[in-house]
Design a protein around this nucleic acid. Structure first.
Lengths: 350, 350
DNA sequence: CTGAAAGCGCTTACAG
DNA sequence: CTGAAAGCGCTTACAG
């Protein structure tokens, strides 16, 4: 009647071996089925495991294998729409494949803090790292990652020397801007999200489209992540009659901008067309609903994990990973036209 | 000139001991400064550590101490506003205190899947667990957590037998409903977010306020997390002339409802007052801006981690943890009145 | 197919 | 203050 286990102290492989009357290595073999184990012992071991409710200690395993089953995700502010969606995608896959996920938020505005952040990640001995490189801070973190641990980056499209999932942000920005120009606007203004610099961003696509069209290129306006900030900017640009079309760095901010324009008496899209980026769920019910670029963050997360897993397994099987730098996949967004953009005339776009 | 380390193979405590010409246990003592180490050896060891860029292997440490430095966070859909904010708060604190964070998304609609989810968490040997108990699924997971690992729950206010951070949702729902009634509405309708049952929820507070006021208690309408769903519901309830005030389970959904009402020709708040819950940043720039209950998810996350850490340390120091079940702290929300609610008359509330 | 031995990197008594 | 020894729970050659 009395259970075999001492309260709180879980069964070890030793207990299983003893109960099944086999040696510890045999249990290990059974667990990892690398070598054959006789049918008779298999059942004895299986019974012992069930009876003791035994589960292998992953810590001990990791120590001897010099390899954990843990993947680290490095990201700046995880509460932002894109980041949280991406992480969700990664998490789903990881769980499915038996990996655990360590989330590490990058903080710090100076190099030392970033170094600390990154080091605390490396201390955990992840088998692999996924870096959400959506802004400048995470871009800096990339430099600090050791070359010998498999890494996949999800980004606009910045690096050549690492496995990567590209969201094709530049292309998205390009398409969106081109679309707005096609509506008859003389030019399109741009409000940038933080860290939007670099050659592969939404902003870069915007610029390219304007250049190609020979349209004037206004100075982009920098904003924070806060929709309230967008509102303030919206009020300001309302004063400028030349502004008839605005491409805002993301949907949250775009909604703020529209509200700000409204505060100042401007109608969207009748007076000013506004488009966002990301396809945030609230943008779909916003009034007017947002024209935007739909981004598949969840899919990007899933693909990134798959890519990382392949890389990890390639190393395990000795296939090396230098060539993994070539791994590259695109998860492009696509234009979604809704109510917030329209012809340049005063007539309501239908 | 040649570095001492083989490429890829990090230095171990053995290497440090050898280089510093001391025994391994001495290095260990230095690292953990439990016992005194002579000044002379201290500097030798320090130099060796710096030279080898040595960092203790947390895996080996965890194995011998039978205790990791890792905390697991259990949550359903981590992309939702409340969840992601809470996790962010936890993460900040954890990082600061030298703990790593494992995020585990609860999935599954049957018991077996939940058991699997929970087991995969336990396999990781977390020193502690924080459960975001915001809905029914996570509530089921709670039952499966072992009593011997320190656990803190963040919830509306459901359990008595565990350490807990309460968001006081019932009280929030109560206040909000009372406020709406005070505006002159005959009653307040309610649209519930998933898993909103139970005695300590927003919904329970709503009911209580109506009961106290002797107001009619309409049948609550169930919704999903999707704002589009709110929009559909908004269109439907627009047909019912008796609906002059609606309390929606969260802000995202509330925005959908307002849009739906608008689709059907109803003005907010002139025709119908609508309030949400959570104080989502977009709700602040929504037109009309949302009356809501501000919830401090981030703070709740931080408090939960602090509580867990105390519990963990109490156990370490042998103070036991039975009494920790009593730990309980409240992070109450508060009413924020904005533009989406007003007097029952047709006049615009100021 | 199977067991005795060694070892992963660290910490914890145990003697000095 | 310090070192030799044992052990955490597992896996991996090594012999049979």
């Amino acid at each position: 009647m009395a259970t075999r286990q001492v309260q709180g102290k879980p069964a070890s492989i030793k207990d299983v071996a003893a109960l099944a009357q086999v040696s510890v290595p045999t249990v290990s073999r059974y667990l990892n089925n690398r070598d054959r184990v006789s049918e008779e012992k298999r059942t004895r071991i299986a019974n012992a495991i069930a009876l003791l409710d035994y589960r292998p200690n992953p810590i001990a395993r990791a120590l001897v294998r010099e390899r954990t089953k843990m993947v680290a995700v490095l990201s700046t502010n995880t509460t932002l729409f894109g980041q949280s969606q991406t992480i969700y995608g990664i998490e789903q896959k990881a769980q499915q494949e038996g990996y655990s996920l360590n989330i590490d938020v990058l903080v710090g505005d100076n190099r030392k803090q970033i170094v600390n952040s990154v080091n605390s990640v490396l201390d955990q001995n992840p088998v692999g790292i996924i870096l959400l490189n959506y802004d400048e801070l995470s871009n800096q973190a990339f430099e600090l990652l050791p070359p010998n641990v498999p890494t996949v980056m999800i980004a606009g499209n910045r690096r050549e020397n690492t496995a990567q999932v590209s969201m094709q942000e530049r292309q998205g920005g390009y398409e969106l801007t081109k679309y707005m120009l096609s509506l008859g606007h003389r030019t399109v203004y741009h409000i940038t999200i933080p860290g939007g610099g670099g050659g592969y961003t939404r902003l870069a696509g915007w610029r390219q489209a304007l250049e190609e069209a020979g349209a004037p290129i206004p100075m982009p306006v920098d904003a924070s992540w806060d929709p309230e900030d967008g509102r303030t900017i919206g009020r300001q640009i309302a004063a400028d009659e030349s502004v008839t079309a605005v491409f805002v760095g993301n949907d949250e901010l775009a909604m703020g901008v529209i509200r700000g324009l409204g505060d100042a008496g401007k109608r969207v899209p009748e007076d000013v067309s506004v488009a966002g980026f990301d396809d945030h769920p609230i943008g779909r019910v916003w009034n007017p609903s947002l024209t935007t670029i739909h981004q598949d963050f969840r899919i990007a997360g899933e693909r990134a994990f798959e890519m990382l897993q392949t890389e990890i397994e390639d190393i395990d099987s000795g296939r090396g990973h230098t060539d993994s730098w070539d791994r590259y996949i695109e998860v492009p967004g696509h234009l979604i036209i809704r109510e917030s953009t329209g012809q340049v005339s005063a007539d309501r776009h239908n």
